Measured scan of single mutants.
Amino acid sequence: EEWMVEKALMVRTGLGARQIESYRQGAWIEGVHFKRVSPSGESTLRGTTWYNYPEINKFIR
């Protein structure tokens, strides 16, 4: 699984929702560690946020 939603990321990493938000707003790079995608497939600020687990795992190492 490369891309996953927040709940799956929480299960895989043990991070809480606030921790994920903090990383997203600070250290993680949009387009690398996470992306927002609307149902139409376009990038957007209001779409579902998807997280790239392999890239996040590399960051944590």
Score class of each variant (00 low, 15 high):
Glu1Phe: 08
Glu2Ile: 13
Glu2Lys: 07
Glu2Val: 13
Trp3Ala: 01
Trp3Pro: 00
Met4Cys: 08
Met4Trp: 03
Val5Gln: 14
Val5Cys: 10
Val5Arg: 12
Glu6Gln: 08
Glu6Val: 12
Glu6Ile: 14
Lys7Gly: 12
Lys7Leu: 11
Lys7Ala: 15
Ala8Val: 12
Ala8Gln: 12
Ala8Thr: 13
Ala8Glu: 15
Ala8Cys: 12
Met10Gln: 08
Met10Gly: 04
Met10Pro: 02
Val11Gly: 07
Val11His: 12
Arg12Ser: 07
Arg12Glu: 05
Arg12Trp: 09
Arg12Lys: 12
Thr13Lys: 01
Thr13His: 02
Thr13Val: 05
Thr13Cys: 06
Thr13Arg: 00
Gly14Val: 02
Gly14Thr: 03
Gly14Cys: 06
Leu15Met: 07
Gly16Ser: 15
Gly16Leu: 13
Gly16Arg: 10
Ala17Tyr: 08
Ala17Trp: 11
Ala17Glu: 09
Gln19Leu: 07
Ile20Cys: 02
Ile20Ala: 01
Ile20Lys: 00
Glu21Met: 08
Glu21Tyr: 07
Tyr23Leu: 10
Tyr23Met: 08
Tyr23Lys: 02
Tyr23Glu: 02
Arg24Met: 15
Gln25Tyr: 08
Gln25Asp: 11
Gln25Ser: 09
Gly26Pro: 01
Ala27Glu: 10
Ala27Asp: 09
Ala27Gln: 11
Ala27Cys: 11
Ala27Ile: 09
Ala27Met: 08
Trp28Phe: 03
Trp28Ala: 00
Ile29Tyr: 04
Ile29Asp: 04
Ile29Val: 12
Gly31Ala: 03
Gly31Thr: 04
Gly31Val: 04
Val32Asn: 03
His33Arg: 01
His33Phe: 03
His33Glu: 02
His33Ala: 01
Phe34Val: 02
Phe34Ser: 01
Lys35Cys: 08
Lys35His: 04
Arg36Ala: 08
Arg36Gly: 06
Val37Tyr: 09
Val37Glu: 11
Ser38Asn: 12
Pro39Cys: 10
Pro39Glu: 13
Pro39Leu: 12
Gly41Phe: 08
Gly41Tyr: 07
Gly41Ala: 09
Glu42Gln: 10
Glu42Asn: 10
Ser43Val: 11
Thr44Gly: 14
Thr44Asp: 15
Thr44Glu: 14
Leu45Cys: 11
Arg46Thr: 15
Arg46Gly: 15
Arg46Leu: 14
Gly47Asp: 14
Gly47Glu: 15
Gly47His: 11
Gly47Lys: 08
Thr48Leu: 09
Thr48Trp: 06
Thr49Gly: 03
Trp50Ser: 03
Trp50Glu: 05
Tyr51Val: 00
Tyr51Ile: 01
Tyr51Cys: 00
Asn52Phe: 06
Tyr53Val: 06
Tyr53Asn: 02
Tyr53Pro: 01
Pro54Leu: 09
Pro54Asn: 10
Pro54Ala: 10
Pro54Glu: 12
Glu55Met: 08
Glu55His: 04
Glu55Pro: 04
Ile56Glu: 01
Ile56Arg: 00
Asn57Leu: 15
Asn57Val: 15
Lys58Ser: 07
Lys58Glu: 09
Lys58Thr: 07
Phe59Ile: 05
Phe59Asp: 03
Phe59Asn: 03
Phe59Lys: 03
Phe59Trp: 15
Phe59Ala: 04
Arg61Ile: 14
Arg61Asp: 09
Arg61Glu: 14
Arg61Thr: 14
